[in-house]
Design a protein around this nucleic acid. Structure first.
Lengths: 215, 215, 215, 215
DNA sequence: AATGAATGAGGTTTCATTCAT
DNA sequence: TATGAATGAAACCTCATTCAT
């Protein structure tokens, strides 16, 4: 899986690049619809308007397109917006902004996120990738929590590592339930607001910060 | 999927029942190792020490053993422990007890839970079952939250439905991260304690209740 | 195929003979319904109210029951009634009687005859049996024709062997078309009458004999 | 069954069409040798000099090649020669010509005819096709007989429908006995002559017509 | 490169036959 | 003998991958 870069050299012909793009787009469509396992290369090629065999002019196999699709996803998803760690505004506002950015992206790419969830359970190679990414995110959170605790702005009895995982889990899994499983029709603002409030409450970030967040 | 009872009549002979059990056990092993999609009936039969064709004396196909395995899982998992709704002790203690029960079961059946997660992404039929189960759990939580809000014991500004999903997500996903993905080696007690504390904080359950919980 | 006698020794137990009979009856039913090729031993056993494996206490396999079924058929079918060769009455009356006997039997055992037809195309061994039987019948006819020709009672230019085959074919195939394929709803008497007339006409059996036949 | 046209799209490449033809030829061979039921796709592919899986590039399954084979047969067989109904020569000559055409074709395609007979007993779909064809033929005969009766040239006491079936049966079944079962080594001319004579006799077509036929 | 047929490993399923109880 | 599970040889079909044009 994990090779992000193109697998079969750089395309020489003008239309080759276009066909490669079509295949990636088609693969994404098919993956989202059928899941990685059941997706057939035939279908991908057909969806791209190409002959079956042409697929292999561009990719070595299913794993290989998957890599390309993931690369594309990365481009789309990884504009994390205002990082939590970014200074310059108050904590609650930053949390809210991060949640908003995350949830809006999740909603936009819901079917992709579903695919990612599936891949993580099916493909070990991909699971590892995702773990790395999550770990980075969680570590950032853990650092934030430690900082807040040190400054007396967060419940000092919370284990910062576990808390970081738990909070991330809460947000990401609620997004999954809402946008992928279609849990209930929820207004996005209400969702952001509630999750932010839960997050802030959970850490016991003091009144001062919260009030400012509401402003 | 998901019919608990035997699929091809009840076995008449004593050793037949034994072989059926072996097949279920083997299937579970193989499912846990290879995932539902990649599991091969051949491997299941072999793992059960039976000939390939014997599988079909007991099950109609992969879906069918899956049902049997799920039935077994249900038997193992569905000892729900102290329900949140059960009265008679203070709220925080009840939350902690529920968390403990849930996490201990999760740890014991970690590989099964991994399987369930995978099945939910791969098998629509099973996804629906899981949704039903989760919904029941979440609804119970939502009711609890509403009660607490009514009595002035929980942050009144939280949307109870979203909160219920978020809290459930937090606990279950953290369990998954810890026991399935092996996030970090975490002490169970510390995990329970942190999750309980986060939960209580998040709802802003008042000091009185919390202090009792610590006792 | 062609072993008519019991294949696995003489039954010792009282109920054994009964079960054997049940199997033969069941086999016949299943053969008639599904055809020889698609008939499954499981179904035969089940139809006989016996366990699958019990079949093999009585027969070596499908071929073996087939033999038994055919034996039974023989008992039912081979009462050819007034043979053509039997003297003592006029020729036309004898032909009509033979036709009547044949067609009535055919009608009664239509589904069996269908089975026989099928077996003849599918099973070489059985084809040979049927050929032998038909040959006997045809030879008798050929002799009759020769006799009639010698006495000046039949068209002398007909090849007696070919004619014998052709006439037999005409009768048996018309019976098949009528009773098996359900060609048209035809009154039995009209059928007998027409076939007899065609037969007599074809041989050019003289007026004298024919008039007597109508009486 | 029995769709004449290609089943999986028209082949685009020249050699593909060639392989398809090879498969049809091979299937025909194998069907003729082993019968439809026992024919194995593996054998067909092998006989065509192709890999097992290639079969499925061209046909969806056994039924599907069968259709192609039947289409081919149709092309070969359905040059019915001089129709009985065609005017312009005397009746007996026309009957003889029809018999000659039919029997010569039958002899040329004996193994195919055997296959057709078998298919009719095994495959309901094909049985229906054959019935349709035969019905057309028989109806034509019935009309001829009625015409002859009306003009006083045929035994008026014969039921024309039954007679049509009986006569057709006589010819086709005798052909089967001779060429498929190899009843006896018979000279073709003698066979034609005898069948024609029987046919004419059976209907009692008057001397005038017959004499001309002999000329 | 593009095409689409050819390949063949891999999996599923069926069912006659064997065999321990 | 009766039973019904166990066995394993066939057969079918799918689909990723190769390859000639």
């Amino acid at each position: 899986v994990a090779t992000t870069d193109a697998s079969i050299g750089v395309p020489r012909r003008a239309d080759a690049a276009r066909n490669r793009d079509r295949l990636v787009a088609a693969a994404r469509e098919v993956f989202e619809r059928d899941g990685y396992v059941r997706a057939r290369i035939t279908d991908i090629s057909a969806a791209a308007g190409l002959a079956h065999g042409s697929f292999f002019s561009h990719f070595r196999g299913k794993d290989d397109v998957l890599a390309a699709v993931l690369g594309q996803i990365e481009d789309e998803m990884l504009h994390p917006g205002p990082s939590l760690a970014s200074p310059g505004s108050n904590v609650v506002a930053r949390i809210e902004a991060a949640n908003r950015a995350y949830l809006e992206a999740y909603q936009r790419h819901a079917s992709l996120m579903a695919l990612l969830e599936q891949l993580a359970t099916v493909d070990d190679a991909f699971l590892r990738i995702r773990l790395e990414r999550t770990r980075a995110f969680v570590d950032r959170n853990a650092r934030l929590i430690r900082d807040l605790q040190r400054d007396g702005h967060a419940d000092p009895e919370l284990d910062p590592d576990i808390t970081a995982v738990a909070i991330s889990s809460m947000v990401s899994r609620t997004a999954y339930a809402t946008f992928v499983l279609g849990w209930k029709s929820v207004e996005l603002d209400r969702l952001i607001d509630t999750l932010t409030r839960l997050w802030v409450n959970a850490l016991r970030i003091p009144r001062a910060a919260r009030r400012r967040a509401n402003t």
